[in-house]
Design a protein around this nucleic acid. Structure first.
Lengths: 152, 152
DNA sequence: GCTTGACTTCAAGTGCAGTTGAAGTCGTAC
DNA sequence: GTACGACTTCAACTGCACTTGAAGTCAAGC
């Protein structure tokens, strides 16, 4: 097995479909060289990049956001342990925020929906800052977020 | 203000767009009567239903899953505090699982991606049982999930 | 030398959760 | 009596993250 990996090998090692890997490359999240045949050849560190992408998605980032993060890695050399650690650090707080929201939801579930308080005047259940709440349209504010008027 | 609410009133009180409310009705998550004019008239308890939908989405359920939950509520009478509480209970564990996954991700972020262990042989970072991992295609197993072969 | 499977590109399709727009009706306010 | 906003339906569009299919190339085994 060479130092270079085919797309099939990367797929097998990462559990990410080849179609997804091509898609990631097209979006600039990963890169590859080409063999004489025109086939992709991935450097081994791409595996860690793909792992990072998968992790980041589970945390709730979009591919665009993930690309922004990955662009912070040094180019021209293989990212070091420290490089990855630096990216990871900023995520800790992101995860903590999401956990905090879930804790609030958990409380609100019995304390708010389960009882009768849900008059929309009183509860600050949903975190307006969370990405999931800003991503795309849909239920945007419940309370705690800017509302067009003071109607309650 | 009557006991019945127009779609605009429900939207104002819930923060959910009228288009979304029509969509929810079409999908059977909420119901309405019609005024002589053909305009929708919502019973007040619909507000709590909509609140529930918003909560459930934040937790990560699809509208189909939410419908399944809502279908467990009694029909013919306004759901009681106890009815809501019963639904909510099953969610506590769901939230707990999601929190647990985030905790694992948090650890894995420094302990796994940050260091060099990410050889895909050793870490059981991603929860195979989580809905987000089963929803739609994409990165499905990393480790800990069934893989077609034993290749490492 | 030919089949088979892994690879290539490119366009179109999928699923979710809605939004947007067109064309029309309803009801209140002036 | 007419203007205006809130409502109606229906079809088509959006954004995200891919997948699928068609048509073709490449490389290895028999």
């Amino acid at each position: 097995m060479a130092t270079e990996l085919t797309i099939g090998e990367v797929a097998a090692r990462s559990g990410v479909a080849t179609s997804a890997l091509r898609f990631y490359e097209e979006r600039g999240l990963i890169t590859s060289e080409r063999a004489g045949s025109g086939h992709r050849r991935f450097a081994r560190p791409v595996i860690r990049r793909v792992a990072f992408i998968v992790f980041a998605q589970r945390i709730g980032l979009t591919l665009d956001e993930i690309k922004t993060e990955l662009d912070k890695l040094p180019t021209g050399r293989v990212p070091s342990r420290a490089d990855w650690a630096q990216l990871s650090t900023s995520w800790q707080s992101r995860i903590d925020e999401r956990i905090a929201e879930l804790e609030r939801l958990k409380e609100g579930l019995t304390g708010c929906i389960g009882c009768g308080c849900l008059s929309l005047d009183r509860c600050h259940m949903l975190n307006a800052e969370d990405r999931a709440g800003q991503r795309g349209p849909g239920p945007r504010y419940w309370l705690g977020d800017a509302r067009p008027d003071g109607a309650a």
